[in-house]
Write a protein that binds this DNA or RNA. Sequence first.
RNA 1: GCUGGAAUAGCUCAGCUGGUAGAGCAACUGAUUCGUAAUCAGUAGGUCGGAGGUUCGAGUCCUCUUUUCAGCACCA
Length: 638
Amino acid sequence: MNIEIRFPDGNTKEFPQNVTPLEIAESISSGLARQVITAKVNGAVVDCNFPIRQDAAIELIKFDSDLGKEVYWHSTAHLMAQAVQALFPTVKVTIGPAIENGFYYDFDTDVPFTDTDLEKIEAKMKELAKENLEFTRKELSRNEAMQLFADMGETYKVEILESIPEDDVISIYTQGDFVDLCRGPHIIHTGKIKAIKLLKTSGAYWRGDEKNKMLQRIYGISFPDKKLLRKYLHDLEEAKKRDHRRIGKELDLFSISDAIGAGLVLWHPNGAMMRSIIEQFWKEQHYAYGYKLVNTPHIGKAHLWETSGHLGFYNESMYNPIIVDEQEYYLKPMNCPFHIAIYQSHKRSYRELPIKYAEMGTVYRYEKSGALHGLMRVRGFTQDDAHIICMPEQLDDEVSATLDFSLAMLRAFGFEHFQIYLSTMPEKAVGTPEDWDKASAALRKALEKAEIDYEIDEGGGAFYGPKIDIKIKDALNRSWQCSTIQFDFNLPTRFGMEYIGADNEPHQPYMIHRALLGSLERFFGTLIEYHAGNFPLWLCPVQVKILPISEKFEAYGKTVIAQLKKAGIRAEMDISNEKIGYKIREAEMQKIPFMFIVGQQEAESNQVSVRRHTKGTLGAFSVDHMIDEILSEIAAKK
RNA sequence: GCUGGAAUAGCUCAGCUGGUAGAGCAACUGAUUCGUAAUCAGUAGGUCGGAGGUUCGAGUCCUCUUUUCAGCACCA
């Protein structure tokens, strides 16, 4: 009996019943058969040797798709577990999923894996891969499975089994002598895994809970082609060159000194210049968007933080208090109570709302030592903070305007790719579920209106309200929170904020916290990695470097600098006793956008010989012409 | 905070199983005055992150500690 198989392009073809995706691939071409990893049959992902019983729509999946990679890497994780158990029989297996780039497997072992162990495991994996061990699926009853893994001493698998819902199908996959509880699907056999690299080991808590035992995790990656692995490793090396900590040092932008304290940033002149340009732009934009700038102190009395609830909720991440005149003062972890104090400095009319107070507020939070990371996670940082205090009926418009402002701000710095999250009510929260729904709806409406993709982070909101977060990835694909727009149910109540409405009665306003860049430190870090230090001209600390051919032309160089500076262009001259090639190399490595080479010819014709960073020589131009060019590029913020 | 690495000159790094610290670049000095990614020569620079300990002797071994890297957990 034949069945009809329908392909994604709409074509159909007859096959005998129980035909497998692999056989279908073979019927098309041997190349496809070699490449096929898994298949979707009527939308369900299955193994390649899955017998298709009736008419179905099929989609053959190769490594070049996300799904193909996932199955391929997940299978490699199984292979790794097999190798680990072959080498270390007492090690218990837990879970081993595919991740965005590769896979990991968590093992329970008393002796952590060393780098040498990793090499051995990798070698064993390659050996097992060559054996072309078939992945075979078997479905069995809960009790059978329990018995099987209990006999093997795989207690974690038993624990997982216990948490699988009643009516779920339980399946195991076997390759060689290795058995693993798994939903599947898998690749056809281990021989499909051609290139393997185990990348790193680390500790990881069982089920992601720090109260549980710490397991040993091994991360790895694999490819069906050695060339792909080489490319991956090369790209990884390239990405490391974009590391903001490395570029920060190379371009003399910032440092973090052991002598001063972990997580406390020193902005060097180059970095501080960029920061000042960012701040200036930020201020202009905020005035344009109807914000009022405020400034507030770095410390405040304990009572303030008791009222705000920070001492209750975040006590462990606040710095210890300073005692002044027998009063406790805390370094501020947030700016909100101060902004509220400004709001409450006199009675407010509904006619004043919305009020938007903005401040580059430097805050201090005691981050756990293991969390610190360059500029991305620090203990003292400046938030580009603002609080919007509005009437309930203004909420939708304000959230929407803030989201637009946020995206515009990030785009102004060249960012195009964001991950956007809407975080909803967590377990520990203030406010009623109805309030949460209402506020979440306002946030959602703004996202829909802006027509941008976002994900829901279920239960990821702050205790005081739902929020929209915009994250940016660093060079190594790690996400860092940038903008955040947070609704607050907590503070207006706690501080008893009010305004007098048109009805001449007091009402409680709504409050939104928002930061667009997030923290200046972190934003700077992502900016460095995003541009790999090749900043847009308007942000460059030094826009033009004058390179005299020899000391004899320094006098002419000075006249050029004077003209540039008069036009507001940041220019410096290299007066080192070096040859022009050396000066160019220095300027190139400093990633300075414009190099003006000046010698005999230029001095005589009142020109400069222009070289552009990474682009090379552009030719000789008059200084006036170059000033026009540079100013228009700066104005365009490109 | 947890697991596992690491810390040697301003920077990047070498220093075998314990025998008293080295290179390149940078800096400084001198020569050179040069045409698009490194001119030559010389000089100086380190209580080997810190504190204990073992040892005749510690950069090297042990303990504690600080910082840092990767990941986990956390992230108002």
